[in-house]
Structure formats: C-alpha cells, structure tokens
Design a protein around this nucleic acid. Structure first.
Length: 965
RNA sequence: GGGCUAGUAGCUCAGUUGGCUAGAGCACACCCCUGAUAAGGGUGAGGUCGAAGGUUCGAGUCCUUUCUGGCCCA
C-alpha cells in the first residue's frame, strides 16, 4: 500500500554551508599526469631559468658520479639518482644556485667486452685480427662509442622520468674530447708532482694473442698440468738449526758432552725447504718462499734427507711421495723461519723465506713458491719485501736470456717437463704427478693464460710530492681525518683503512676502449712522457678527440709541443722518430678526474659540497677522485661524502638476475609513478642495506595518498580565498588561537625539515612532514576548524582567519614537499595560487622556503594533553550511550581555569558541543547532551539551539549565518 | 680469511653519555562519522630488543663468543 502522506519537508541547510570544493583530484593519476608536468618544465626551460634567475645567488656545488652506460637503470640507480635529486632540490628551495650536471662513464672493459662478444658471435673477430693494430683499435672503438651512446640515451630518459632535475641538455661523458683533455691535464699535474712512474706488474697474459687480458675475459676450463714438490736447499745450516733450537753439528758447542743421546740436539745434514707448485715453468723466476707466521713447521728426516714443511701436512706429503720412514726432529712457528735464505736449485742466486698470510695448510707443503713476476699474491709480497717483479718470460711465451742455458728460448709449456726432469736429475725433485685442475683460458683463443709481469704506469702513493714533500697516502689520510665529513660517520674508518693498505695505483690497461696514455717510445728504447708533452696532447685531444692517438702521427699529435720550453724534455729528443705506446687509462682515472673535467672546466666551483654514492665507492670513485685531486690541487674534491647502502630483497639478500629477485624500475614507474617511488626513497634508512619489495611501494603509495588528501582538504576550503590577504588577516591573530598554534607547528616543522634536508636526513624530514599532515592537520586542526569553515558565515572573521592559516600552511607544505614530490607539489601549488593551465611558466620549483616566525603560547602543550584526557573520557562515555562526541559536553574542573583564554576553541578541539569551566568541579566530567536540541545545520548542541522563524532548529551562530537573527 | 656494517612488534624505523611498565607510523581488530566519502576521526591488541655468556644495584645500550645478511678486499 502506497504511503498516503509524503514525508514532511524539513528545512535543508546543506546548501547554506561552505562545503569543501576543489579541482585538485583525490586520485593522483601520476602515470598520466607526471609526464605532463615533465613536459611543462621542459618547455618552459625550468632548469635554465633557475640558472639565470639565480645568477647572483650563493652557489651550491654538487657533483654527479658517472654511472656506467651499459644497460637500463636498476633499483640502485633509482635510489642514487633520487637521493641526489633531494639534495639538489633541497638546496634550490634554500634559494641556492645549483648547476647539477649528470654524467656517464663511457669507456672501459664492460662495454668493450660486450661489443667484442657481439662481434665474435657475428663472426667478425677474424676479420678484425687481419687489421693493423691501430685500425683494429679504431674499429673496436667505433663500435664501443655507438654502444655507450645508445645506453646513455636510454638511461637519461629513465632518470628524467624519475623527475630528477639536472642539466640533461648538456651532460658530461668521459668520451667527450673536452673531458679527455681535462683528464690528461690532471695526469700532467701528477707528473709535475713526481708521482707517476713506470714499473713491472704481472697481468693475465694471452700468449696466443700477445695481449693482456682482464678478469672478465678469462674462461675457466679443466687442464692437465704437472704438479711438483721441490726441495730448495737452505743456504745456512747453522741458522736453520738455530731456528729449530738445534745445534748445527756435533762439537759446535764447547760444553757439548760426548753422550751419544745428545745426537738429538745436532743437525748434521743441510736441510731443504720443500715447496709445491703446479707451474714448474715459473720456478726460474722464484725469488722467495712464503710461510705463515702462525703455522707450525716441522723439520723432518726421511730417506736420508732433511726437509722442512708444515707440520700439519707432513703425513700427507710423505704418503704421496711414497716415503716409508720419517722422523719429525723439531717443530717451530713459521715466524721463526722468516729471514732464512736458500739456494735456488738451478739458478745462481739465493732467495729468502718471507711471511704471507695467504699461505694455507690445505694443499702443498705450507711453503709457497713465490715468483713476483708471475702471480698476484707473489707480486704483492714482492712489493712489501722489496723484491723485483722479475719475469724471464717474453711476450711469445719463451724464456729470455736471463735463465740457465738449457731453458733459453724454450716455450714455457715445454719447459714444465724439462724443469721437472732437471730437478729430478739434480736430486731436488721429491715427487711429481700429473693432475687436472680448473685453469684460466683466453675466452677468444681458448688457450691457457699465464701471469706475466709487464711494464705498467703507476701513480705512486708513497712518493713525496713536489708541493710539500708529503705523499699522496699521507695527504689522503690527513684529508680523511680532518678535511672531509662523512655521512654516515663510519665511512671515515672504512676509507682510512682502504687508504692505509692500498698499493700503488696501476693506471694503465692494454685495451682499445679508453683514453690513451700519451706516452711514446724513443729510438733508444726510452719512454717519452713529460708533463708538457701530456698537456700538448691534451690540447690535441680537445680538438680531435682521443681517436687522434690512433689516426695521427707523433708529429701531428705533438703539434702543440715545444721541446725547447720543456725543461723535462729528454736530451736528443727527435719527435719524428717517436713511436706511440698503446696503453690506455684505467677508467677510474677518467671518472676520478671529473672534479677537473666538470666542476672546474665548467666553472661550477671547487671543491664540491657533497659527493653522494653507494658505499662501494669508498674504494671506487671517492678514493680515486681524492687521490688525483690531492695530487693535482692539494685539496680534496669534496667537503662531505654521503653514502647509501645496497638494495636487497625483502629477505635481506642481494638482488641478482640469476636468483630472479630483482625489481624492474620501469615497471615500478608504470605502476606507481615517480612521486610514489621518490616518497619510498625518501622514507628509507639509506645508510645501510635497503630492503625492497614491490609490496613496499604499495605502502609508500598509501602514505603518499594521506599527504595528498590533506593537501586536497586544505585546498578545498580555500575556494575563492585570496592568498594575498593572509598577512593582514594573520597579523591580528590571538596568541592563544588554534590557528596560531597550527601555524607555529608549520613553522617548527619547516625548520626541522630544512635542517634535516641539509643533513641529508631525508627520512627525518619526510616523517616530520607526514606527522604534520596526519596529526597536526588532519587529526587535530582540520577536525577542529571544520565547524567554523563549514558553518560560519562565508566572511566571518573566525572563518577567514582559519582560511588564512590554511593557505599559509598549504603554501608551506608545497615548499616542503617540492624536493620530495616534484609533480604533486607543483600541482598543488598551481592549484593553490590559482594558476591557469595556460600558465606554463609558474612553478613551485622556482620558489624557495619562506621564513615563518609563528610561535604559540607555551600553555598549548597543556591544552593538547587535556585534549588527550578528554578523548579518553569520551571513549569511556561510549558505554553510557554517548557515542557521538557532538552529543557530549565537557565540564572542566577548577584546576583548568587558567586555560580560560583557550576556551573559545576548546569545544572544536575536543570535537564536542560545549565546554564549561565549572565551579567547584574536582574532575573532568562528560555531560550527556542528548536531551538538548540539536542544531539542524551544525549538528551541535551548544545550548543556544531553538526554533527559528523558518521553522528550523538552529543555534545562534547558524541562525546568523543564514540571516535569521 | 681480513676491514667496515646491520640484525628492536607482521612491515619500515626511533631509542642521547647504561636508569621508571621498550616508543612511532603502516598493516590488523573494534567503534564513531557519512557535510574531506574508493575519504575522515577514535580506541585497542601486538616485542624473552638475532643467540649465548659476562660486567653492573640496574644492559636494547658496555665486554666476549657465536649465528645470519650486506659492501669492499684477499
């Protein structure tokens, strides 16, 4: 049955309210909107305008470490680039002039190896090998340059998509002629300081291709080799005896008795040191035997000979050699053996026992054959012991004339057996056998690789520099100690340790894809390289690029060189007879010269305030920038080093493609947008490992939405409000008003954010902003002022004051958020200031922080504490049926009467209808107002509600607002 | 194997020089609001501080050992 009487028409006041309204959408739609912001900034030349409008501003020198251009960006790049952008944009908001030039590392083996692999797969390497060396270099270099350029383009687009602000129109690449020239100038400065030297160092060497190889070019394959146990006769029996606490021979001691039992005290045969090696061909280069100082060594008598080896290995060795009887005469720590000497079994020299901590007791004899010219460990030991990197093997794998006659000119591979036979014949061979092991091979020729000492260029870290006689190591340690700040602080220890223990820096490589070391060979075989000649070549490279090294003659290359003006020019120098050497620089030397090639060459400033990279760069870019810079300028290139950790998966394990736990940056950007990704980065504790999982970005997205919604709410209450009126309205604000309290919170938060950002404590800044949005604004201020904004007359002073406060808050929030959320902050700012879409020039990113001087009454902490207590009481009152706070009133006891000045705002602050300072009240009491009339417009029961002339139940305030006095 | 570093609620993190019942936020549960509404507010539960031992009146904090990760070397 249809209802006969229609529902009674009640007066509806909804239309008379000032309800929120804004064009700022709740849904961010970042995926579509961000590219539009990006386009607007690009078209309005935001970066350029920031340079020109701040020409006079205090510069902030910040420098980009060049990532390697060999693939799309990954999570590590995203982390690094966003952190850097927070630094850049943070400084911009402080009003600084920031010219951040993005850079790329373009030379080096990874690209060359990739290119060579591709050429190999296409069957083009054979053709390459038919070319003359310089043509071959050029062919490879052209391919490498194309590959590097391709990846730079890809990475730059991805970095821009992360909304990072940098001089993308004019980046730096290490392959640019100007950059190459500036790198050479650093090298020339180091030559001037006297720290560049040429010395031997073992490298992986392919005999088949007569070339040095890098680790990445090795393939490990099984190979059968000859393994030999060899006795090296001690040079001085007495000293060995003494080391083992024995006497050298019977009667050597005056007080020796004739007692036959004392035979045990005598060592009457000359003992040998037994070594083991799987490369008998390196025995001619043996210069030392290494022992471990803390390992035990035994003096063993067996089959008529006396031999020294590690105690732990005696049984195994004896068993292998098939020796039946043996006696351990004495034992001693390796430390006691250090310094003893021995006779080389077939070369006319003695060697000595040295200490090395890489000696293990897993294989062999515990005494390690050491040939500094043929092994990496051996070389290091040799450096420490002052032994030369002696290498009697020529580049074709044959011995030179420094070895005994019977080996000269022989190939090392045939020498393996011959050496063993020779040792057997002379009685030095204890045991030999053939065995199969994993051995490095040249990836191209598939032939076994050897370690062979070759001439290399070094930067000596212990040589005194001309400037002040200090070495690079001394200067670097001093800089780390007191001239550079570290974030986190432990970076200082880490880097100090690395500098203390680092060897000379080998800066030469035998490759194609890199900056040539501009050294020449003179007719007499001497090397020609002076500071002046390097500077002359630098000029030439600046004009022609470093390809000139492979395309031009020495005369052309040295066209800017004037021997007469070069005090270091060698006597009898004849440029026309020079030949070019073919080494290139370690890519780290190029990257490590960027402070000169970018900061100084472009007039940006020196040194940089901050270098910010992953913690792996303590050994990499940081250290290898510090050393050249200290050499060339005497001053560290950075005032502060900030490092971040590595991205690991949600279980804390490193990300790798093979495990399949990587996160694709491109996919993240497509799903969440850059602002959310940046919000995630801003919130992480970047100093340590950073766990990442796609789920975490959902959380960041939620947090972002909270901030966005708070801004949206502020904007929605500012419809038609003119921000220009803020100052005049707020100047009359009562010190005890909630508006003033909120503005004081904005001011202190902004101060905290600025401080945190300047310290790169982005997480701290982000949390302060989030708390401001979530607590101060959303939960407290906006909830409290909702009533006056909605229900007061549109132009009531109370409403206008809150609008002015909200405008100021929103404006400040945009500025605080600008570094973190470049798109959202700009979108909000443009909405706040009423910018037309056609206005493409205006942007938050041209602004800076505004000084906010608001402070609030100190009693506010009491008021807020009271609010917490009241919330608790209201919660309890729910059990009495008072579930809606607007059904409640609050009686405040006498003890709170000193808060009378705050009374006007207290009902709104508590969310209740009425607050009364009661007389003779001892405790807070919640009043049940449900029996009182409820205003049909504001839903408050404030005691003034009564029926008005239109028939509606309204409070006085609401009646006035709708014009019903 | 060495240097540096981390391990606190399901998750992300705070916890000054050792000092009250170890704090936030998110997520979760319950409630309110329905005039920020694919929003907003309130309340609550949740931790033997990686493990073991030690110093101390008292240890998340200091010492030793150890386990599990990370970066860089070897």
């Amino acid at each position: 049955m249809p209802d006969a009487t229609p529902p009674q028409e009640k007066p509806s006041y909804k239309d008379s309210l000032n309800l929120p309204k804004t064009g700022f959408a709740m849904k961010a739609n970042l995926i579509q909107a961000e590219p539009q912001s990006l386009k607007r900034w690009e078209e309005s030349k935001l970066f350029d305008r920031l340079q020109s409008t701040r020409a006079e501003a205090e510069p902030f020198v910040f420098h980009d470490g060049p990532p390697y251009a060999n693939g799309p960006i990954h999570m590590g790049h995203m982390l690094n680039k966003v952190l850097k952008d927070l630094v850049v944009r943070g400084a911009l908001m402080e009003g600084r002039r920031v010219r951040f030039v993005p850079g790329w590392d373009t030379h080096g083996l990874p690209i060359e190896h990739k290119v060579m692999t591709e050429l190999h797969e296409k069957g083009k390497t054979a053709k390459l090998d038919t070319l003359l060396p310089e043509q071959r270099h050029m062919a490879i270099r052209r391919e490498c340059a194309a590959a590097a350029t391709k990846f730079i383009g890809l990475q730059a687009e991805q970095m821009k998509r992360l909304l990072t602000l940098a001089q993308y129109a004019d980046p730096y690449y290490t392959l640019m002629p100007q950059y190459e020239a500036k790198t050479l100038e650093v090298f020339a400065d180091l030559i001037d300081q006297g720290v560049v030297l040429r010395a031997l160092k073992p490298v992986h060497w392919s005999i088949a291709n007569k070339t040095a190889l890098a680790e990445a070019e090795l393939e490990y394959e099984d190979r059968e080799d000859l393994s030999v146990y060899v006795d090296f006769e001690a040079a001085d029996r007495a000293k060995v005896a003494a080391a083992f606490g024995l006497l050298a021979e019977a009667g050597a001691s005056d007080d020796a008795s004739d007692d036959a039992s004392d035979d045990a005290r005598y060592l009457d045969a000359t003992p040998s040191f037994m070594i083991w090696t799987t490369t008998p061909w390196t025995l001619p280069a043996n210069l030392a035997i290494a022992v471990h100082e803390r390992a035990r060594y035994a003096l063993v008598e067996m089959d008529g000979s006396t031999t020294i080896m590690a105690s732990a290995l005696v049984e195994r060795v004896v068993k292998k050699a098939g020796i039946e009887k043996f006696v351990v005469r004495a034992e001693v720590d390796g430390a006691k053996l250090v310094g003893l000497s021995y006779k080389h079994p077939f070369c006319d020299r003695t060697g000595r026992i040295v200490s090395a901590d890489y000696v293990t007791l897993e294989d062999g004899t515990g005494l390690v054959h050491t040939a500094p010219g043929h092994g990496a460990d051996d070389y290091r030991t040799g450096l420490r012991e002052g032994l030369p990197a002696y290498c009697p093997v020529r580049e074709d794998g044959t011995y030179d004339d420094s070895v005994p006659m019977w080996l000269r000119g022989k190939s090392i591979w045939t020498a393996n057996a011959e050496v063993a036979e020779h040792l057997r014949a002379s009685g030095h061979l204890v045991y030999d056998h053939r065995f199969t092991h994993s051995y490095p091979h040249d990836w191209r020729s598939k032939t076994p690789v050897i370690f062979r000492a070759t001439e290399q260029w070094f930067i000596g870290v212990d040589l005194p520099m001309k400037r002040d006689g200090k070495s690079l190591r001394q200067r670097a340690l001093a800089a780390i100690e007191s001239e550079v700040q570290f974030t986190p602080e432990w970076g200082r220890n880490r880097m100090r340790g690395m500098i203390e223990s680092r060897p000379d820096w080998c800066v030469s490589r035998q490759r194609s894809w890199g900056l040539p070391i501009p050294a020449f060979k003179m007719q007499d075989g001497a090397t020609f390289l002076t500071a002046a000649s390097v500077r002359a070549i630098a000029k030439r490279f600046a004009e022609k690029g470093s390809d000139a090294w492979f395309l031009e003659s020495p005369v052309e290359l040295l066209s800017h060189y004037e021997p007469a003006k070069d005090p270091d020019a060698p006597r009898g120098l004849d440029i026309t007879t020079l030949s070019k050497l073919q080494d290139i620089f370690d890519v780290w030397f190029e990257a490590g010269s960027s402070w000169n090639a970018v900061l100084r060459a472009r007039g940006i400033g020196y040194p940089a305030e901050i270098y910010l990279e992953g913690s792996d760069q303590h050994r990499g870019w940081f250290q290898l920038s510090l050393l050249p810079a200290l050499g060339a300028t005497g001053v560290p290139p950075f005032k502060r080093l900030v490092t971040h950790g590595f991205i690991v998966d949600k279980d804390g394990r490193k990300m790798s493609k093979s495990i399949g736990n990587t996160i694709d940056v491109e996919a993240l950007l497509k799903e969440y947008g850059a602002d959310v990704c940046r919000w995630w980065v801003a919130g992480i504790d970047y100093e340590n490992d950073i766990r990442a999982d796609s789920e975490f970005f959902k959380v960041a997205g939620e947090s972002y939405r909270k901030v966005r919604n708070t801004i949206r709410y502020l904007l929605s209450n500012l419809e038609g409000f003119d921000g220009g009126e803020c100052d005049s309205i707020l100047s009359g604000l009562a010190h005890t008003s909630i508006d003033n309290w909120m503005l004081a919170q904005i001011a202190s938060t902004q101060a905290a954010v600025r401080d945190a950002v300047s310290r790169c404590a982005f997480r701290e800044a982000q949390q302060a902003i989030y708390t401001l949005c979530n607590d101060t604004l959303s939960a407290i201020y906006c909830a409290a002022t909702k009533d006056r904004l909605y229900c007061d007359g549109r132009n009531s002073p109370r409403r206008r004051a809150s609008q002015a406060a909200m405008y100021t808050a929103c404006d400040a929030l945009c500025r605080m958020l600008a570094p973190f959320l470049p798109h959202t902050a700009d979108e909000a700012f443009r909405s706040l200031t009423g910018m037309d879409p056609s206005n493409t020039a205006g942007s938050i990113h041209l602004e800076r922080y505004r000084t906010l001087l608001y402070t609030c009454d100190p009693r506010w902490s009491e008021v807020l504490a009271l609010r917490e207590v009241v919330k608790g009481e209201l919660e309890k009152a729910k059990s009495r049926g008072i579930e809606n706070p607007l059904d409640a009133g609050v009686l405040l006891p006498t003890s709170h009467h000193h808060l009378e000045e705050f009374l006007a705002d207290l009902p709104d602050l508590f969310g209740v209808s009425r607050v009364v300072l009661a007389r003779d009240q001892s405790a807070i009491e919640i009043l049940d107002l449900r029996a009182e009339p409820r205003c049909e417009r504001s839903w408050k029961r404030d005691g003034s509600v009564r029926t008005r002339s239109d028939g509606g139940l309204l409070s006085d305030r609401d009646a006035q607002a709708v014009g019903l006095a």
